[in-house]
């Protein structure tokens, strides 16, 4: 559309957009400020935007079961080890010791090992356990869901008989059904099979409820890849599976990243399923909901610290993957 040329008009447009930014981020900024205030300041009836004494006290209380100062050496050690891992990853790709995917997998694996070893050596709080639960469930859901979604979505993109349409429509129906209709039977089944309160149950359940969305989205990305590409590979003697892994997957990579991001967010943000299906092995959204019911003002600063801690990974995702996120969200617009 043609642009407004009037300078006053342009100023007004930018002002409106700045207002939008304030409206969107203010709750987060406010929680960030509250989380670094002493409880007395967090409950001040004349709240301050600045000019208060900042403290890390709330984060220490939330994450640690020890003095903050005692944690400093562990934090430094973690940081050094993480830098070593990154340097190793960069070097091994540069010097061609290992291929890039293998290096990435080793690096991510080492990071995970670090995070799991930390509570063995330092006294971390329950919140850290919930963080690890969230991590395991999110990564597990992501890996399983995308692996089976890729083969399923690809097959649905390349198959034209009625069965494909039936599966797609059924998946769409499942996607629209309320989660409550599944969660209570899951509880019943989990109790019968003694899987209640385990991470593996959460992973299985989240894969299932995210599967309809995953296959729809991946299918549309695979449909954008011309059939001729894998046909050429198959004429050269590659089988269907081989041409899929060696030819199609590398081309579809951006689409797979987009779908992965949404699966990741869905699994990380899910509240109802872990709430119903766990008793002690909470994930982060369930843990923070427990801070919200009380009227106790002493909790306010801690709850803010928890909110900010949970949101930081999401902010990182926005910063690094904004392009893919926008593409995925606008996906309905492009496909009609």
């Amino acid at each position: 559309m043609e642009k407004v040329k009037n300078p006053i008009g342009r100023v007004l447009i930018y002002l409106a957009l700045i207002l939008l930014v304030v409206y969107s981020v203010m709750p987060f900024v406010w929680s960030l400020l509250t989380s670094i205030k002493y409880p007395i300041e967090a409950n001040n009836p004349k709240p301050k935007l600045f000019g208060f004494t900042p403290t890390m006290m709330n984060y220490e209380e939330l994450w640690l079961y020890m003095e903050g100062s005692a944690f400093v050496p562990y934090a430094i050690a973690m940081l050094v080890l993480m830098i070593v891992i990154v340097v190793f990853a960069v070097l091994s790709v540069r010097l061609q010791w290992l291929s890039k995917p293998v290096t990435n997998m080793i690096a991510v694996g080492l990071f995970l090992v670090l995070l799991f070893v930390l509570p063995q050596v330092a006294q971390m709080s329950k919140f850290y356990d919930y963080f690890l639960n969230s991590l395991v469930v999110t990564v597990g859901t992501l890996v399983v869901s995308i692996s089976i979604g890729c083969v399923g979505g690809y097959a649905l993109a390349r198959y034209s008989k009625i069965w494909g349409v039936i599966i797609l429509i059924a998946a769409l129906g499942f996607r629209a059904l309320p989660r409550m209709a599944f969660s209570l039977p899951y509880y019943f089944i989990a109790q019968m099979t003694h899987l209640y309160d385990t991470r593996i149950l959460l992973i299985i359940v989240m894969v299932a409820i995210n599967q309809p969305f995953t296959i729809w989205m991946l299918r549309s990305f695979f449909m954008d890849i011309p059939k001729e590409i894998e046909e050429a590979a198959m004429i050269d003697g590659a089988g269907r599976l081989e041409s899929f892994f060696k030819v199609i997957i590398p081309i579809a990579w951006p689409g797979i990243i987009t779908t992965s991001l949404f699966t990741l967010l869905l699994a990380y943000n899910e509240f109802l399923m872990p709430k119903i299906l766990t008793q002690a092995n909470w994930t982060l959204p369930v843990a923070i909901a427990s801070y919200t019911s009380g009227e106790d003002a002493a909790y306010r600063a801690i709850a803010a610290a928890a909110s900010v801690s949970i949101t930081i990974p999401i902010i990182i995702v926005i910063i690094f993957f904004q392009k893919y996120l926008v593409k995925g969200l606008a996906f309905g617009a492009v496909k009609g």
């Binding site: 969107s24 987060f28 967090a42 409950n43 709240p47 969200l329």
Partner: peptide, 24 residues
């Protein structure tokens, strides 16, 4: 910036939104 409210964990987003209206 505009996307943050949409992809933030709903439980957390609601809590942040509500605390804006809490006392202080």
């Amino acid at each position: 910036a505009a996307l943050i409210p949409h992809i933030i964990t709903p439980v957390v987003g609601s809590l942040m939104f509500r605390t804006m209206f809490d006392r202080s």
